[in-house]
Amino acid sequence: MSKSRSNKVTAPSFTVPDNCAIYCKDVNFVYNPKTPFQKQALNNVSLTVNKGEFVAVVGHTGSGKTTFVQHLNALIRLQSGRMYVLGRDLGDKKLDLKALRGEVGMVFQYPEYQLFADTVLQDVSFGLKNFGVDKDKRVQLARDAIQLVGLDFDKVKDKSPFDMSGGEKRRVALAGVLAMNPSILVMDEPTAGLDPRGKSEILSLVAQLNRERNVTVVMVSHDMNEVYENADRVIVFADGAVAYDDTPRNLFRFETQIEEMNLEVPAMAQFANVLEANGITLPDNCKTVRQMYDAVTALRGKADV
């Protein structure tokens, strides 16, 4: 605590660039400090995320990625280092938590397990109510969010969320966060446990929010194929530190290093790497099967001529 304050004193004039959504400098975090259970979870983490970016955060269990993302809406308070989210100083003792949490939407793992209200509408409005939005406005925002996640508002609003299917519950939970119109969406494995169709529905929704509403997305994921196809940038955590911070294409060229960290190399990256090793360059946007197929077809076209 005292450390963050001293940091503030040493850098009072620091201003975060306008287009910067998340700024971290030398962030450290220790669980249970000064006890036998002491554990350094974050080790000098420095990174920035620009507004409108889609960033994937990867790393195996215990790498610090979850601790890091929970800093973003101050569920875990900054111990040392500097951290600014949407211009707010997270080291500030008088930080307005509610305002921050309204702007940084956080979707936890298996968010459907946190549903509690009698009706879908009530559950989706819970956050809005907490942030003091008045009733008419609440219904309107909840309607938007429920429709955004692909559910029929009039059909589901009075239903009990517990009577819905697993995939629908996940979407209701997601709507509960989206209703607040967050500028940053932080998600911890949003597709875990879903079947392929459920996965791609959630991912295309997130991609759409990112693209059309310019929502900054920070997504924790274990599925490297999913990361490869969706993220603009990948941040790899290992032992509490940032091991890599690069575009998916560049990152997954380091096949040995990736596999040493017990992560998988996406199928399309493996494929592209073999082609590159044989002197064939592919455009950078070959991330999905379809894109790769088109690119390879184009290569043959060129070779034919």
Binding site: A267, Q270, F271, N273, V274, L275, I280, L299, R300, A303
Partner: peptide, 13 residues
């Protein structure tokens, strides 16, 4: 295996 497939595509090209 994506790497094998990549090799096959290279041979084709």
């Amino acid at each position: 295996d994506a790497r094998t497939l990549g090799g096959e595509v290279c041979l084709n090209l």
